[in-house]
Simulated scan of single mutants.
Amino acid sequence: MSQKTPLHAHHLAAGARMVEFAGWELPVHYGSQLEEHRRVRREHGMFDVSHMRVIDVQGSGASALLRRVLANTVDKLRQAGDGLYSCMLNPDGGVLDDLIAFRIEEEDYRLIVNAGTAEQDIDWLSRQRAALPDAHPTLSPRRDLGMIAVQGPCAREAVWRALPGSLFATERLNRFQAAEFEDMTICRTGYTGEDGFELIVPGSRMTAVWEALSSAGVLPAGLGARDTLRLEAGMNLYGADMDASTHPYESNLGWTVDLTAGRDFVGRNALESCDRSKRLTGLILEGRGVLRHGMPVTTAQGDGLITSGSFSPTLNASIALARLPSAVSPGATVSITIRDLAQPARVTPLPFVRNGKILV
């Protein structure tokens, strides 16, 4: 049976179409996915992302454990509230999960991981902790917490209206920083390519916060808009654009790998000698149809594969992320077979859209 978030009744009352996603029953849209997408690009929208899982890593050896399991390094987190995006790798360099890590204080961290990999992540962290005899941090899955993402160019101002006093706590936050406000954590992060906040909220307070945002004029958006927004922003979806069989460099995530001398981490040896003959890049369909996950791509330099694809409301065209031979240059024309017809597509750098601006 699918799990339900504390806001499940609100979604039903708002007329949401519900779907199963990663073991959760979540809203895919509230009537118009297209309008929800456009509203976030031009103003703001809010998403129930309580399926994302929070894991607290605390106590002696917490830093040592995260230095071991993350391809990026928590040594970059200099002060309370600093965060970073990273992949957690297997020994072959494959991506077990992508996550955000925040420093709460010394030897106290909070991880935000994907719903579909959360239990595997906890097990992997436990096993890696056992390999560090002098590290004994606690791993605490926080099932008492939910998450609301408020995204868009006017999103922060909407949060400040909805939550009086939050302006003082959060107005100086940079991207990938977080601050405590009352009983919640407000993070300047998101999965849409727009500015905004992600609020980590006690489950018992989710309804009150959601209603306060609604009273401030923020309308809900579903998983459908979240997916097209993140695709336009060139952001990977775990299980589609990368997984345990792909490494960061072929998933456009080489920027998340820190190979600072002297720091060992699981998967480092594999990454230092990995095959980089393919990479993740963008496609814009110039023919007819819609690009979809799993479609093969034919190029002059060899075959590739679409990992994510959909219609882009902002570009008014079908776009995709595709893993292609690294020798394929931006601007090149490639071929995708759609309904037995070869259709041309143009290779483009990522992202397609950020902060409301078309970049291709």
Rank of each mutant, 00 (worst) to 15 (best):
F176R: 07
S215A: 15
F265D: 03
L145P: 04
H247F: 12
T256K: 15
R127I: 01
R38G: 02
C187I: 02
G23M: 03
A208R: 07
Y109V: 08
A233Q: 04
G262T: 02
I338Y: 10
A131V: 08
A71T: 07
V266T: 13
W210H: 07
T246Q: 13
R288T: 15
G59P: 08
L223F: 10
L167K: 14
S318L: 07
R143L: 13
V54K: 03
G190I: 11
V95M: 15
Q33S: 15
F311L: 11
E36Y: 00
A9N: 08
S32L: 03
A149S: 13
A322K: 07
W124V: 11
P296F: 08
G239Y: 06
S312T: 02
T228M: 06
R143Y: 09
V57Q: 07
P141L: 05
I284S: 03
R161H: 15
Y109C: 04
P349N: 13
Q128M: 10
D303G: 09
R41N: 01
V40T: 12
G287C: 01
W210P: 07
Q79H: 09
A64W: 00
M206Q: 10
R292I: 05
L99Y: 04
R279G: 09
V218I: 01
S166P: 08
V328N: 07
H37N: 10
V257E: 08
R17K: 14
A162N: 00
S204H: 14
R354C: 07
G304V: 10
R172N: 02
L96W: 11
V40W: 05
I148N: 10
F176E: 10
D92R: 00
R288V: 15
T299K: 03
S204R: 15
L132I: 10
K4I: 12
T185E: 15
F21M: 06
A162V: 02
L305V: 13
W160T: 04
N90S: 12
R42S: 12
K76M: 02
R67P: 05
D134Y: 09
I358T: 08
G222A: 02
E180M: 07
N316E: 15
P133A: 14
G287H: 06
G61T: 13
W160L: 04
S2N: 14
S310Y: 03
T348K: 05
G289F: 00
G222W: 00
A332M: 04
S335I: 03
T337S: 10
V49N: 08
L139Y: 11
E107V: 01
G165F: 03
W124T: 08
R205K: 12
R161E: 15
Y85E: 12
I200K: 06
E36L: 02
I336S: 09
E232K: 10
D123K: 09
Q33G: 15
A155K: 09
P202N: 08
A244V: 11
G116W: 00
L229N: 13
D82A: 11
V297R: 06
L350S: 08
I336W: 05
P313K: 11
Q58R: 15
S140Q: 11
A233V: 02
L253G: 14
